[in-house]
Design a protein around this nucleic acid. Structure first.
Lengths: 215, 215
DNA sequence: CGATTTTTTGAATCATATCAACGTACGTGG
DNA sequence: CCACGTACGTTGATATGATTCAAAAAATCG
């Protein structure tokens, strides 16, 4: 259970974790299982937990006054999920986090998180790296919004993350892209008719990975 | 010159910087003056410098194949600017960074930046905090794109940053919002006619600060 | 298998882009 | 410091792309 997590940390940092550091890290997290459709966080509650996905798939979304859902983040194996601002500052969250598949997570409270940052240099290094990556990714995603059409953003998304479509419904992907389900359906039809399929060479290499690595 | 920078660091960290740490920090940065319209970074070049704005105003933008500019970031006094991914990895940048006003910056190379992170705990703490803030801000800005109309985003922007309109042209602000200059002109006319001016209470308090604190 | 949700499709409507023309503001060089 | 020229902002007409609502077909889950 924790093994894949340690592998992840070693992979991300390029460092080997000592027995004792493993123990410190392991003690800081708890295992949490969530059923399909179960919420890890609900609007109005402060985000008490930061989660690392061992197995499963989740989504983070807000609901506007018309009842429309707006997905801001997906998380699958090897990704982090929380409303980070709420997690840091304990303000009520604007978001829901819901399991799309039955999921296993390692979760950590904010207090334990800060203690762990102080006590595990490897964990600290990994988190620092994730922050950096998240910023780079956010910038690319932002840029895709102000400079690309919905069709380009979709092609880019499936090109970068072909597995996304296997885990999340088309409607959810549309929501993540900021378009309606109907529009995505028509975009897909159009792409097929253009026979572009997914050998989309027309998108700049660096404007990719529009799914946040979630830090 | 450096004094406002030290004040900024103390303000951000809530800590007092010792004489010797000041010296370490000061030695790591150089002063850079840029004239109006001068580029700090051009597309295709790696971003060699990270800049802290002492005085002036700059913008970061890309140019698409049709020649349209897409502004991804503004920076004024007390903000940081670079193409951070390029700065970290030395890949050619997709962006231009241009001074909109004559500007004074403190700049640091990537090598010096990493050395400074290792040698100045206060600087490290400040940067870590900036990373966190940038992530929170990016999430809000992302969310505003997928859930708000252009008019709401504009009202939100001027509400959060009324001074922006004094430093950057309407066309630039339109570009930042991802809309055409003509559309912004019409949006403004509409807002005035609705007599909403800027007492916009209709926008959620947390969906704000859509201008990135620049990492 | 049956119930529920998702996806597709069509038609009407709305929001924004584009192109063009005009007046204005402003910075730049003399 | 003024005048010229360029860039900016506004407005109108038209085009395009996306939304909304509705209904039927297809897929999925329990």
């Amino acid at each position: 259970m924790y093994e894949s997590f340690f592998e992840y940390i070693e992979d991300q940092t390029g460092l080997c974790i000592s027995k004792q550091e493993r123990e410190i890290i392991q003690k800081s997290f708890q295992i949490k299982m969530v059923r399909r459709r179960q919420y890890l966080l609900q609007e109005g509650d402060p985000a008490k937990l930061l989660g690392f996905v061992i197995k499963g798939a989740l989504r983070q979304f807000s609901v506007d006054d018309k009842g429309n859902e707006h997905i801001v983040r997906f998380a699958t194996e090897g990704r982090w999920i929380t409303d980070y601002e709420s997690y840091q500052t304990a303000v009520p969250s604007l978001y829901y986090i819901e399991a799309v598949e039955p999921s296993q997570l390692l979760v950590i409270t904010n207090d334990a998180f800060h203690i762990l940052l102080d006590n595990s240099p490897i964990f600290f290094k990994m988190i620092f790296k994730k922050y950096q990556e998240a910023n780079n990714t956010s910038q690319k995603r932002m840029h895709s919004y102000i400079s690309m059409t919905a069709e380009q953003r979709y092609a880019d998304l499936v090109n970068s993350y072909p597995q996304l479509a296997l885990r999340f419904s088309q409607k959810m992907i549309a929501s993540y892209l900021g378009i309606s389900g109907e529009t995505l359906s028509r975009i897909r039809k159009h792409i097929v008719s253009k026979k572009i399929h997914f050998e989309t060479g027309f998108i700049d290499k660096r404007i990719k990975q529009v799914v946040s690595p979630d830090f």
